[in-house]
């Protein structure tokens, strides 16, 4: 209760400060509009079908990108995690490719696919892939050696070992990876729209800016923040549930 109250106070305080900055003339309202104006614009947007269409486009790029990245990362990550030879052979390549910032690929993606969803997907998938891939490798490698030996001594088949040994161990790691990837994918879905110009919320942000529509711009920033908040909340919930039935206790943070 106290926590909710304090949190609400913080939020209110922030809004008051936001209001006072243009009101006292510290910053021209043309550059920092009043929060009330932004809220009014948001309500107006929410009634506009075009807004929802743009939102859907952004979330489509996000969902497709996240799904593709997760699929690829699970398949490759499991293979690399299970086979020591592959792990050794791919180590340097992974360490080389992982830090490459995905936005560096934007020009290439634009050249190959034009101002299309597919160009945006390249960026989203590349960024999200590494988050999941790394976690899957950790997860698969984390299988308890005693459990592995036990399974072998009881003659479990490869398929059974995957199903009953590897999957339960790796699942919480996978969920952590997917949660991180979901946040990253949203960032890049919006970024791609801003830079590449495929339709969606990101492009609207860029258009508002070039049109000098500060109220619309701030409104869209708030929308992306709310989207990010929603994505975080949902995936944290999913992750916690996947951890709840899992026995192992491990630190929440990725190594």
């Amino acid at each position: 209760m106290r926590k909710v109250l304090l949190g609400a106070t913080g939020l209110l305080g922030f809004l008051v400060v936001w209001h006072l900055i243009p009101a006292t003339g510290l910053v021209d309202p043309q550059y920092l509009p009043y929060p009330t104006d932004v809220a009014a614009r948001l309500l107006q947007e929410f009634r506009d079908l075009a807004f929802w269409r743009r939102l859907r486009l952004t979330m489509t790029a996000w969902a497709l990108g996240l799904a593709l990245a997760t699929l690829a990362a699970v398949v490759l990550g499991t293979a690399v995690g299970l086979v020591p030879f592959l792990r050794r052979a791919t180590h340097t390549t992974v360490e080389f490719l992982r830090p490459v910032p995905s936005v560096a690929l934007i020009p290439l993606a634009v050249l190959m696919f034009g101002l299309q969803l597919r160009a945006a997907l390249v960026i989203v998938v590349y960024a999200a892939f590494w988050q999941v891939f790394v976690q899957v490798i950790y997860g698969v490698a984390d299988v308890d050696t005693v459990a592995r030996d036990t399974a072998r001594s009881f003659g479990l088949t490869r398929r059974e070992r995957l199903r009953y040994l590897v999957l339960p161990t790796a699942l919480p790691y996978l969920m952590t990876g997917v949660r991180l990837a979901a946040a990253v994918a949203l960032i890049l879905a919006v970024t791609a729209e801003m830079v590449i110009g495929n339709p969606g919320l990101g492009r609207s942000i860029e258009l508002s800016r070039s049109a000098g529509d500060a109220v619309g711009l701030y409104g869209l920033v708030v929308v992306t923040g709310l989207l990010g908040l929603l994505v975080n909340l949902v995936f944290r919930l999913v992750e916690r549930r996947s951890l709840a039935w899992h026995q192992s206790v491990r630190s929440e943070e990725l190594p």
């Binding site: 949190g7 939020l11 922030f14 960032i187 990101g202 920033v221 990010g228 975080n232």
Partner: peptide
């Protein structure tokens, strides 16, 4: 506890959308 919800929100904003805002300001 006061700043908690605010921080959650600001963290969730995709950082690149702040570029137009920063350009404006």
């Amino acid at each position: 506890e006061t700043l908690g919800p605010l921080l959650e929100f600001f963290r969730a904003i995709p950082p690149p959308v702040l570029i137009p805002v920063a350009m404006l300001l």
